[in-house]
Amino acid sequence: MKVISTLVGTGLRGTGLAAGCVLGLIAGSQALAQDYPSKDLDWTIAFGPGGGNDIMARTLIDIIQKYDLYGQDIRAENRAGGSGAVGWGYVYSKAGSGYDITTTSGSLITTPLQADTPWKASDFVPLALLATDDLAIMVSGNSEWDTIEEFIESAKEKPPTLAGTGTVNVDFIVPTLFAEKAGFEFEYVSFNSMADMQTALLSGAVDAMVGNPGEIVGLVESGDMKALIYSGETTPPALGDVPTMDEKGWGVGVSMPRGLILAPDAPQEAVDFWRATVEKIVETPEWDKYIETNLLTENIKYGDDFATFLKNAQDGFEKVLRAQGAIK
């Protein structure tokens, strides 16, 4: 069996995709569950070190190694470039392999919408969604608005300016869908980085902004900013007593997916193995600590549920971006 899987591996690198898929299917159906894993794992991180995607991947690898959940070596490689196109393109080229895994972010959906990538999110084998990065609508600490209702009321009179990072991004999609449901309009001001956006809000240039709790919690604790509403399922306690969009009946159902995917047409034994492994990972105290320090929302969905989640997010993105004219 070991020989076969090695052959599949080399065959894939040498020959084309179609042949690889067929071989992969044969190998998958023949192999016994306990044969996986028999090789080193190639873990692609599609972004540079230090970013949210990298931190999550390395945390997962630390947990897997600490509890010896994989049994073979794991090689983590940062294959950064082109907003994830390089790294995920690499994993895509490994179709049929059960040993090529990667972590997702919002770019898995947005990059194919923006550029001619050969792959799209639905090409990969979805293993599990682990958490979502959600957004809070923030105003300056000395702002006249204390609640989201006051904000919306005044927004109906005079549309406020709201800052976010980039346009082809959850930062634009989430408030747009939210405003549609809550019935107000706003002027979106797109920024290149979180830093420019925060100073713009603190300097009084914009009325509000959206941001990840992890990046703004320090400014909330010091009273320089106030959170009005949160897009995730439960508001992190550090943000204070802030309602969620769902609670108010204005849920948007789009957030940045932090999950695990395998190369296209990965064999079933690999999928089964990883499902069981993820179940163990999310029970560890280290995982709880990761969710807590990064202020993420734990949101675990396996296999098809994860695929549906990605599909919904993708539809939301496409709809808003098409209306905006950002994509054709």
Binding site: G81, S83, A85, Q114, G325, I327
Partner: peptide
């Protein structure tokens, strides 16, 4: 940055 449209990227992800 404002409209999200690609300018002179010729479909290349690396030029985004």
């Amino acid at each position: 940055l404002e409209t999200g449209q690609s300018r002179y990227t010729f479909g290349s992800a690396e030029l985004i």
